[in-house]
Every structure is written in C-alpha cells, then in structure tokens.
Design a protein around this nucleic acid. Structure first.
Lengths: 225, 225, 225, 225
DNA sequence: GATGAATGAGTCTTCATTCAT
DNA sequence: AATGAATGAAGACTCATTCAT
C-alpha cells in the first residue's frame, strides 16, 4: 500500500514535470531562451517559481532537459530506420518518413531544435549546446554510414559519404524550416525529398550528357571527369 | 581646404563606425546577441560606451545595422549571378561560386546570419528579424525563378520550382554550417554542390531504373521491393 | 485559518507598500524627484530595489502613487467642509481649519504637492502632472462655488468667484509655504487667514472712503491723487 | 582702433551669451532643469556644447545665471516702486502694476521662478536655491516694510506686517500662476488684486458687523450664529 | 513538496563634461 | 573662441535565484 502511495505520488510528480516541460517548450519555441522568464513559465504552467526550481536546478537545466529529452525521444523513434542492412534507399526513405511524421507532431520542438543546431557560437547553453552538436553529428554519421554502405554496394556513386549526409541533412532542414513557417506553400513528404535528392533534376539528355550535370563547359577544374 | 578637413573628419568617423561594427560582428557571431554586452563591445573596440551610442541608437540597432549592411553587401555582390537569361546551370554555378567566395571571406557574418535565419521564433530583434526573413524569401524567389526558366526551357524536370529552390538553399546552408564548424572535413566548392544537387546520386542502373528512385507513383509498400 | 493566513500575508504586504511610500515621500520632499534614486529609497526603506519594482512599475509610478493616494486622502478629509449649504463664511473657515490641520500632520506631502502644483512646465511626471492640475482645478472650483453662493446670498460683494477662489487659494499656499520653511515666524491659523482675506485691511476711514481702495471706477491716472 | 575692435568682439560675445540664456530660459521653463540637456540647448541656440562651457562652468551655472540675472533685472525694475515714503497704497499699486507688466513680458521666466520658489526641498541647484530664497525673502521684507509704515501711519490695521506681506505675495503668485496657465480665464490687473486684498470682500452690513468676519475673539462654535 | 516575496548583481542607456583640432 | 567626438560615471530597471512559511 505504501509503495502504491509513493508510486502515485511519483506519477503525479512526473505529470507535473512534464507539464512544466510542455509549457516551457511551447514558450521557448515562440520567444527563444532569453525571451522567456522563469516567472513567465511559472505563470503559464500554473506552478510557482519555487516549484520550477524543485524540478530543475536552474533555467539552463530546464531548457536543456527540454531539448535533450525530446531529442532522445526522437532518436529512439528513428534509430532503427537507418540501422540494419536493409536496402539503402529504403532505409533513407523510412528515416525521412519517420522524421516528417515527428516534425508534424512536434513543430514546437523542431523550431527550437533547428535554431539551436544552426547556432554556431556557444548558444544560450554552454553545456547543452555541445550535446546538441554531438547529437547532430551522430545523426549525420548514421546517414553517412548508410551512404557508405550504398557506395560499397554500388548503389550510390562514389562521393564523400559525409558530404552526402550533410547535404541531405541540410536539404531536409531547409525544407522543414520552410514547412514550419509556411506549411501550405511547402508541403513536405518523403517521396518528394527523395526525388529531388536522388533523382537527377536534369531532364534526360540525348547522348550521355546525363553525367555532366555539374560540368557545363568543363572549365571548372575539370572536377567531375 | 575646408572641404578636405571636413572630409577627413567624416572619413575618420566612418572608420570608427566600421571598426565598431567589425568588432561587434565578431563578438556577436561568437557569443550571440545576449552573450555580448555593450560594455564588452566598448572594451574590445577600444571606444567608450557613449561612443557606441553616438553611432547606434541602442543595442538592437547596432545588431541590426551589422546584419542589414552586410546583407546588402552580399546581395549586391550576388545580384547579377542569378539574373539575365544565361544558361540556367551556369547561373546557379556562378551564384554558388560567388556565395562560397563570400562565405570564406565573411565567416563571422554567415555564422550569425544562418543562426538568425533559422530562428523561427521572433528572434532577438523584432524588426530586423522580419527584414531578414524577407531577404531570405527574396533569395529563394530568385533561385525559384531560375528553376522555373529551366523547367520552361526543358533543362530541368517539372518539379515545383519553389520547392527546388528551398531544397537547394537548404543544402547549401547545411554545407556552409558544416564548413564553418569543421572546414577541413567539409570543404565546399560549387562543383561538388552542383554534382550532388543536379547529378543523380544513383549509379546508372541497367534498365531505365534511373528515374524510379523517388517516383511518386511508387507507393511505400512497393518501395522496398 | 487559511483565510487568516492569507489575510496576514496581505496585511504584511500592505505594510511593506506603505513603508516604502512613507520613506519615499520623505525623501522626495527633501530632495525632489531627480534628487532621489531608487537605490536610495531601497536603502532607506530597507528593501531591495527589486521589491520596489514589485510594488510599483517604475519610479514615476511610485512617485505618482505617493502623490495621488495622499491627495485622495486629503480630498476625502476636506470634501464636506465646503459642501452643503452652510453659512459661506463657516464653510470656508471649516475648510481652512481642516486644511491647516492636515498641513501640520503632513508637512512632507505638502512640500511636495505645492512644488508640483506650481510647476507650470511638464513636471517630472507627464501623466501625474495632469491629474494634479485637475485636482487643483477641482479645489478651486469648489471654493469658487462657495463664493458664488455667497454672492447670490449677498454675503460677498459681486466679484468674479473664480478670481476670488484663486486669490484665496494663492494666499493660503503662500502662507503654507512660509509656514513650512519657517513655522515659528509664520504661524498659520484659520482665523488669521480669514481676517486678512475677508476683513478689510484698511482702517475705517471717516467718510465713505472705505470703498475706494480698489475702486474699479478709479482709473490709474487718478489713483495717486 | 584696437580698443574698438576688442569692444566689438566683446559686444559680439555678450550677444552670444544672451542668446544662449534666452534659448535656455525658454527651454527650462518648458521642460524643467532635468528635462533639458546641454546638447538640447546647444542645438537650439545653434552653438556647440563646447561653446556653452566657454560661457558657463557647468549646467547649474548656466541655470543659475539665467535666474539670477533675470531676477536682478526684475528687482531693479521694481526697486523704487516700494521705496520712498509715498502713500502706502500707491506704493503697492505701483509695485503691482510694475510686476504685472513684467509678468506679461517675461512669462517664461516667471514660470521658472515660481516653480523654483515653491520648491522647498533643495531644488535642482544647491547654491542657486539659496539665493532665490533670499531674494524672495527680500521682496517680502520690502513689502512688509510698506505694511509696517502703513500701520504706523494708521492706514492699515494693526496686523503682523510680515504675515500681510506673505499673504499678499502668495495671493499675487497664485493669480500669476493661474494667469500663466489660462490667461483668458484669469486676467490679472493691479486694481482687481488691490480690491480683493484691501477691500473687504464682505458686503457692508447694517450695524458695524463689518469687522466681525474674522474676529479673533469669535470662537468657532459661535461663528455661525 | 509548494509557494511567492524578497533579493541584488548585471544591463542598457543617458548626459554632463572634457579636450584635441 | 568655437567645435563636436569621445568619455564614463551614474541611474533605472530586469530577472534568475533563494528561503522562510
């Protein structure tokens, strides 16, 4: 009975913690780290400032918990989309499908996440910033691994897999940002992104010009020959 | 003689203004808007706080001037790369070439610019934020115009030109960010970006499979076959 | 019990607010709005600056609250001295009596009030300045109403009641100022003021000269004959 | 010839000094000491800040010069109106006439002067404040002297001459303030003030009641009988 | 655990004053 | 004498954090 009681209390506690995080995420994504005060969060979440500090050591902690826990959630949800030795194209498509689903359900989080990721200078958070960067590096590395496998399997052309990963990641981020700002004009779905990234954008040209895309006159250091 | 004197004074004044902006850009790009105080900028630029306020009405103003003047500079430098009715591929390559040149010479600025652009929530600057977004929209629109022309001229396949523009823009931004963080591992040049974006990443496949990768008629269930 | 607790806390809060106002009134009346800093008030009232700002939005607000609340208090205390249809002389004497009593108990406030009232240029406080002027206008209007009634009842001579009110008000203010600066040399009491204002200052003169002092029919050229 | 040159230069200098004072007076009277910056005065007077400091040691000095020189001017203009052994009523009327003339021609100055005079706490200016108070004391003393003479000559009733002086002075100040704020509703002229101050305000009453209005022997309880 | 009043270090900003030209 | 760019001390105000109840 006691254990039940404690357990109920603890569940209650967790609910409170989540509620705070939920409200804070919304507010931070709307106004940024410096645009939201602890008082603001207290008022909006209907707890007192004191309670906020019971759950989190300080404002950065709260902000960090917010991001890191959500990121874990996202990483967990996407982990196996890229792993295993499925067909590489399938892997990526599944990853994209999953990611886009998450974006649509977690707009607030992605707004915040993308702005934190882009920030090159030591962001609002000394410590958290680093973890974010590392998380992102891991994601790119995971994508790169898929590309590398694809290259080995002669599915993809022989390009720097990390560059490909960063390029794809950038394209996705760019499209997500546009989607978050004006979703109607920039609907996103995995197929479209796959088509743009993997299909040649160029119309098929009569004789073997297909591979020249980035070589109009070949004067540029002849790089693709 | 008098005109010379005045002119010298004014030139001096301009130099001071530039110096302040130069120092401030560096500092903001390293620590963000809220991570730098006016005192900091004063100390580093070797002027007094008062002088800072002679040149700029307030901190936001200084920050805004910083971004907006640089942006104008960049836009001016890149304006005609995308205009005119040159070959579309050429246009984009020239644009990329120019952009990458600017990135290498204005690392501080791009760090700041990209983090402001990504920020979806109302950034540090109410007014400036909007101008930045608009500037970015214009850039994407200019890219989209080139894509549209290319589609009409049957150089590019018939995809939403704005989507293509946003995708390319995102890819570039992503690569620039990686370059700014770890330039050695992510060298960027126009040809590589062109190749990734325009060339099919896929290895030529025996029978016309080339166009299938993101074939919208494929449904998911079939994609892994 | 809970209600008691809340009530105690609230009473405590009110006490704190009052204490701040009390200290601030004293300081402002001694050194003027610009002669007192928020730090000064904090130190003297033994609260922190932050607490000051919990109670008042800004320095002007604090200053305004100070004046306006005291003014309300004074107006309330004096309201019915001038109203009702008592004998006009009685009304005014009662008013004076009350006013003088208040002056003696609220020297600090009157010092401040009189200096704000006199200030013709937009005082320390844009908004408050106007309210003060209006309050003063009301007071003069109330006095004027008594004079008007007196004139209708043929107790007072037929002079502009507003001019009479302003004259009496000015005389009172002048005497109060002198009293506040050197109370021993300028003791004030209702009777004396009544005597000076209402009684002729002139010694009775043998033949009907009594009405000549300021005879409006005299023109200047003749006045010195 | 040299002396002439110097003299011209000096006259020029004096003109500049006056111009500065003229502009400053206007500005201070509109916005108060703290509402005007040295930059403001420089801009408006079309001199540089540096020049302002060539003429005056600091802001207080400028403010002081402004007031004190004007006050001297006023005192000079009014000095002999109260002096000599003319008829006392005439003295005061002439004084009032002169004063009102000055008020109408120096509205800005009087606005400022009255607000400084009223200020009981150490005004904007430590040193100047004292001089102002003293000047005012002198004026009251001069008025008191006339009253004293009048009492000795049995023109005025036997009341404290300083109290009478302060009362008259207050009444005048009050009316001037009203005039400065809403001149149309409160026209001022010497005759009216004389009539209000010296004439009994009370209508002649049948039997010698005239002297009762503020009879100090009356006590309150009896006053309404 | 929950509260929210109190705290005060840290920021932005102003403006009187100086001084090299 | 005249200029006005530069200075920096001082003041209003904010907000993360603490702690007594």
């Amino acid at each position: 009975m006691q254990s039940l009681k404690v357990s109920r209390k603890e569940r209650e506690l967790q609910r409170h913690r989540w509620e705070i995080l939920r409200v804070a995420l919304k507010m931070f994504s709307e106004s940024g780290f410096h645009g939201v005060t602890m008082q603001d969060i207290a008022r909006e979440s209907e707890f007192s400032v004191g309670t906020l500090y019971k759950f989190f050591n300080n404002k950065e902690d709260l902000y960090g918990a917010l991001l890191l826990e959500k990121i874990d959630e996202m990483e967990d949800a996407l982990r196996d989309t890229l792993e295993g030795d499925k067909d590489e194209m399938d892997s990526i498509r599944t990853f994209l499908d999953g990611l886009i689903g998450l974006v649509k359900k977690n707009a607030d989080f992605f707004r915040l996440y993308l702005s934190e990721i882009t920030r090159t200078g030591p962001s609002a958070l000394s410590s958290i910033g680093i973890e974010l960067k590392e998380g992102r590096e891991r994601e790119i590395a995971r994508l790169a691994a898929v590309f590398e496998r694809g290259i080995r399997n002669e599915v993809f052309r022989d390009l720097d897999p990390f560059l490909l990963a960063a390029a794809l990641d950038g394209m996705i981020s760019g499209l997500i940002i546009q989607y978050l700002e004006q979703g109607d004009r920039y609907p996103i779905d995995a197929d479209t992104i796959m088509e743009i990234f993997f299909g040649s954008i160029l119309v098929d040209q009569p004789e073997g010009k297909k591979q020249k895309p980035a070589n109009p006159n070949d004067n540029h250091a002849m790089s693709s020959q």
